[in-house]
Amino acid sequence: MAQSRRHDIAPLLALLPALLIVVFAYAGTMVWTVCISFTDSRLLPVSDFIGLEQYARLFSDARWILSARNLVTFGLLFVGGSLVIGFLLAAFIDQKVRCEDLLRTVFLYPYAISFIVTGLVWQWMMNPSLGIQASVRGMGWTSFTFDWVVQRDMAIYALVIAGVWQSSGLVMALMLAGLRGVDEDLWKAARIEGIPTWRVYMSIVLPLLRPVVVTSVVLLSVAVVKAYDLVVALTNGGPGNATIVPAKFVMDYLFTRQNIGLATAASSVMFVTVLAALAPWLYQEYFKAHRAGGHA
């Protein structure tokens, strides 16, 4: 056993608040949430253990199944759409265009705006009687329809549009920073070999940007799982239940439908899902590298 030079308590003292937060506000509450999910709690938490009954109830609940399905649909389209648009914008801007700063500012400003504001603006624009649809019809294209917010099977795509509008600037900014980090000699080499620009982007640059892509996917995915504000502001889960998502499902049962047991079962499922998706990435990103490189 290595003899320690001294027991310095200053750093430990500095970490005490963080430790308390992790123990009580994070770990403690997670455990508590999971515990409640095994009980028959409704308005208030009670301690009668009923095993996995809430989970059985949860997975036979059509609203929950729908919210999970919505999450997958929204998630795939939102992440995919933001990635593609963000990458294209970054690649376009990277072509030595004029007004680069102005374009960047325009593409990124929605990301500074809250999901509530985003949702409300798009709700107004997609208003079927006074919004874009009415305007375009007024200009003579009478068959034009853009009333997704009020269509049960289309409302989820309205969420996707608003979400992509808000977040693709983020991908653009990250990708652009990545593109500017690509070795200039690579471009010179590709030029000498006569490789077309788009091919260079697809076959050489994109693989180099893998870490940026991973980062973008992680950031966007976090937004997907947390998606609540946007739904509340744009559709409030409607029409009917058409755009319910797990976060809203939980909040509804916690604060208005008064079924804490079911709500915590749902949040426990969210917790386990996120944990399973995250653990390998977290390990890879933050700890492997540190293990490898010792302290000099």
Partner: peptide, 19 residues
């Protein structure tokens, strides 16, 4: 501690809110 903090960052608020 750092890992626990990061995990917390990625978790949806619904996991913590009620307790």
């Amino acid at each position: 501690l750092f890992a626990a903090l990061l995990l917390g960052a990625f978790m949806p608020y619904q996991v913590f809110i009620y307790p």
